[in-house]
Simulated assay, not measured.
Amino acid sequence: MSFAPVIPFSGYAGWKFLGRTMQMQKAAFAASATLKRDEAHFREKIGGIRTAEDLVADRRLLKVALGAFGLDSDIDNRFFIRKVLEEGTLDTSDLANRLSNKSYAEFSRAFGFGDYSTPRTVLSDFPDEILAAYGQRQFEAAVGETDNSMRLVLNAERELPKLAAKASSETTKWLTVIGSKPLAEVVRTALGFPASFSATNVDAQVSSLRRKASAMFGSSDPKLFADPANMDKLVKMYLLRAQTAAGLGTTKSAALQLLQSGANAQRALSMRL
């Protein structure tokens, strides 16, 4: 897309700038020609789609459908996507419910091919629902081209409050966080865990996340993310720690280059002598 978000600073300062200019930047993004073409095609065609087979047969429709749920990379996995849609979500054994990434279940439920005798594609407000989600996700992707940490934060601000509002148990909520790489990255980093944390036993991860969340927020229940103040604190800690880690990585890389340059110079001098 031709749209390039303006983010003049990295870290928390950049995030606050993006927040202040969000509406203006979203408006500029919404006016981009590519997005408008995608939206026009979706509005024109989606009402005539009655089966999962129909949807996966139209690549442009499928692009929007998947993009609305952050599943863009599955655009070429048409057999898999068709199966996710056709099985639906009403039975725990359905494929979408067995996948760790819960976006598949949301995707299948939204279209309703496997859950209802008549899919939700025929509803008058269905295009608005999907296109709003698609536009938000694509804006986040555009932001990620400039600063991926900002994209992760935008995703967390959208998903964590929704997760907090669910009636599921603490454990289920934490497992949902762990099962989402973008959410896990933000929460793990904000709570001070290293990247290797994600490779540990899942039960141990849940226990550690609860303990750190309780220490930082006074609660071990992810419902705490329904509070904007807690979300802001999480975002601030994530961006500060991510920026620090990036700075350390740059310093180490520069130091390594200096050492290698010194070693090369010493070898060259030895050869001359």
Results as ranks from 00 to 15, higher is better:
M22A: 10
L18C: 10
L209K: 03
T172F: 14
L240S: 09
A156N: 00
S180I: 05
A229I: 11
S100G: 05
K162E: 14
W15G: 00
G70C: 08
R37F: 14
L99Y: 10
D125H: 15
P161K: 02
L18P: 05
E145P: 15
M237G: 08
F79R: 15
L123W: 06
D76Y: 14
S103E: 03
L55K: 02
A213Y: 03
L55H: 02
V202R: 13
S108E: 07
N230D: 08
F69C: 00
S32Q: 11
N201D: 14
A52P: 05
F79V: 15
D38A: 13
K173A: 05
L131C: 04
T172Q: 14
Q205V: 07
G192P: 07
D94H: 07
I46K: 04
I81N: 03
A96Q: 05
I49D: 03
W15N: 04
G19E: 09
T171N: 15
D91M: 12
A167H: 10
R267N: 13
K162P: 11
V186D: 01
D58H: 01
M271L: 15
M216L: 12
G262W: 10
R37W: 12
A57P: 02
R82L: 07
V122K: 13
L191G: 03
L18S: 05
Q205A: 02
K166V: 10
S168V: 13
R59N: 14
L99H: 10
A199C: 08
L239R: 01
S2Y: 07
A184C: 06
V56H: 08
T189M: 04
A31G: 00
L224Y: 00
K173M: 12
L259A: 09
Y238S: 04
V64A: 04
I81T: 05
A204N: 15
A165E: 10
F193W: 07
A263Y: 05
L71A: 00
S117Q: 15
N264L: 15
F193Q: 10
A242K: 04
G88P: 04
V186S: 03
A213K: 06
F69K: 00
A226H: 00
H41C: 14
E53N: 13
N97C: 11
G88A: 07
L183D: 00
A255L: 14
M150W: 11
A190N: 03
P182L: 06
V177R: 06
G67L: 08
N77A: 09
A57E: 01
L209R: 00
S180M: 04
T51H: 02
P119C: 00
K181V: 11
L175M: 06
D72R: 15
P127D: 03
G112S: 01
L183I: 05
P8L: 08
A96M: 04
Y134R: 00
M1K: 12
S214H: 11
A245T: 12
A215P: 08
T251L: 15
L123V: 00
E106D: 12
K233E: 02
L258A: 13
L71E: 02
F217V: 02
L99W: 06
G218A: 13
F107W: 09
P161G: 01
N155M: 07
L240Q: 07
S180L: 03
V187S: 07
D147V: 12
V84Y: 01
E106S: 11
N148G: 09
K223V: 11
S207N: 10
Y134A: 01
L240D: 11
F107D: 07
Q266M: 12
N201F: 06
S100R: 03
L163V: 05
G114P: 06
K252R: 14
